[in-house]
Amino acid sequence: MKQSVKRMAVLIAAGALALTSLTGCTSFDNDDAVATVGKEEIPAGVANFYARMQQAQYETYYAPMMGTTGEALWQQEMEEGKTYEESTKETLLLNLENLYLIRQHAEEYEVALTEEDTKAIEEVAKKFDEDNALEEKEAVSGYKKYIEEYLELVTIQSRMDPKMKEGVNEDVSDEEAAQKSMKYVYFPYSTTDADGNTKDLTEDEKKELKKTAQTFADTLKASETKDIDALAQKSGYEVKTTTFDSESTAPNADLVKALDALTTEGDVTDVIESDYGIYVGKLTSLLDREATDTEKTNIVAQRKQEQYDSLLADWRKETEITENKKVWNKIDFEKQGVTAKQSDDQYDDAADAE
């Protein structure tokens, strides 16, 4: 959640909005509750503002990258029987409820807004007000009290995040994090011409390629140095390098399995066939120090995230949460597009407010 929260705070501070479509006025009262967390109601104004800021990111940045429009994006099927909009809104409401839960437990961790936080939040809300016209503010519930409420929530969450992750066991052994390394050559069952057009090999061509790969593997195994780089260069093939463990599936699960079974550094696999080509791999290290240390960091981060998620799950079980879908469903992404217009000013303090 923290990454999206930071991006959201920066967008609020540094961007103005443009409505790409508008079918009518907001059909709910901003003070209507979209959900109740314990004894605390989540105003539709806060929920709408949060949802529209997220929508602006998707429609401004992600939709063009995916080669589609904002409206078309939301109509796409994310999973069986659920559109991208429905799936996204489901996650947004869950995240918003969690923000309120976290604030309700902040006192237990001695977390509270500072004077600097309050000042920064007020400045961000003021700039957003100045950067957007009335129509945009009405459409996204972009009024001072809702913006400030939202920024208070994300500021407290950012302070709570490290505290909720404190105390996990940070000792990770080499055995637990062990990463091996490989070099491999891939013989694809396709060719690409100068114009970038790809053509699949015929069955006869595949048989010839397998003979080539087998010769490569046999030659490499028989050589004294097993220098895969030199042999590949001589044969006109590219050598790739990566690290792995027994759970890895890239670049190919069968290749990983074959290399993981080797016990001596420098050993070479047999040819490994896949649907799209053939691999020949060489085990270059039984314990890649750099990759193993990185994996230790990843394991600790995963433990911290699991503790964070577990706390949230416990708080949700202990707290009565009710959702007013009738109000929440009125926040419709398809019928009202929102994109971000970059402001000429930069508001670096906004990220600090988070």
Rank of each mutant, 00 (worst) to 15 (best):
S4V: 15
K6F: 13
K6L: 15
M8K: 05
V10H: 04
L11S: 14
I12P: 00
A13F: 03
G15R: 08
A16D: 09
A16T: 06
A18P: 00
T20N: 08
T23Y: 05
T26Y: 00
T26F: 00
T26L: 00
N30P: 01
D32N: 11
A33Q: 03
T36C: 07
G38M: 03
K39C: 09
E40G: 01
E40N: 09
I42R: 01
P43R: 03
P43Y: 00
V46N: 00
A47S: 08
N48I: 02
Q57F: 15
Y58M: 12
Y61V: 13
Y61P: 00
M66G: 02
M66Y: 05
T69F: 05
E71A: 13
Q76D: 04
M78P: 00
E79N: 08
Y84N: 10
E85L: 03
E86H: 05
T88H: 02
T88E: 04
T91Q: 12
T91D: 11
N95W: 08
L96C: 06
L96E: 03
E97N: 11
Y100G: 00
A106K: 02
E108N: 10
E108C: 06
Y109Q: 12
L113I: 08
D117G: 03
E123F: 00
V124A: 10
F128Q: 04
E130A: 14
N132M: 09
N132Y: 05
A133I: 14
E138P: 01
A139S: 15
S141F: 03
K144V: 13
E148V: 10
E152R: 10
L153V: 06
L153M: 07
T155N: 06
M160D: 02
M160K: 02
K163V: 14
M164E: 07
M164C: 10
G167L: 10
D171Y: 15
A177Y: 11
A178Q: 09
Q179W: 06
K180D: 01
S181P: 03
M182W: 00
V185T: 11
F187C: 15
F187P: 10
Y189S: 03
T192C: 01
D195V: 05
D195F: 08
D195L: 10
N197R: 13
N197V: 15
T198C: 03
E203Q: 08
E203M: 09
E208C: 07
K210F: 14
A213D: 07
T225N: 11
K226A: 15
D227G: 11
L231V: 10
K234Q: 12
Y237R: 14
V239F: 14
T241K: 11
T242Y: 08
F244C: 08
S248K: 07
D254V: 01
A258K: 03
L259E: 05
A261E: 14
L262S: 03
V271K: 05
E273C: 06
D275V: 10
Y279A: 04
K282D: 07
T284V: 14
T284F: 01
R289G: 03
E290C: 00
T292S: 05
T292V: 09
N298R: 15
N298Q: 14
Q305A: 12
S310W: 01
L312R: 11
W315N: 02
W315C: 02
W315Q: 06
R316M: 09
K317H: 09
K317N: 12
T322E: 10
N324T: 14
N329I: 05
K330D: 04
G337T: 07
S343H: 01
D344E: 05
D344T: 05
D349F: 15
A351M: 13
D352F: 07
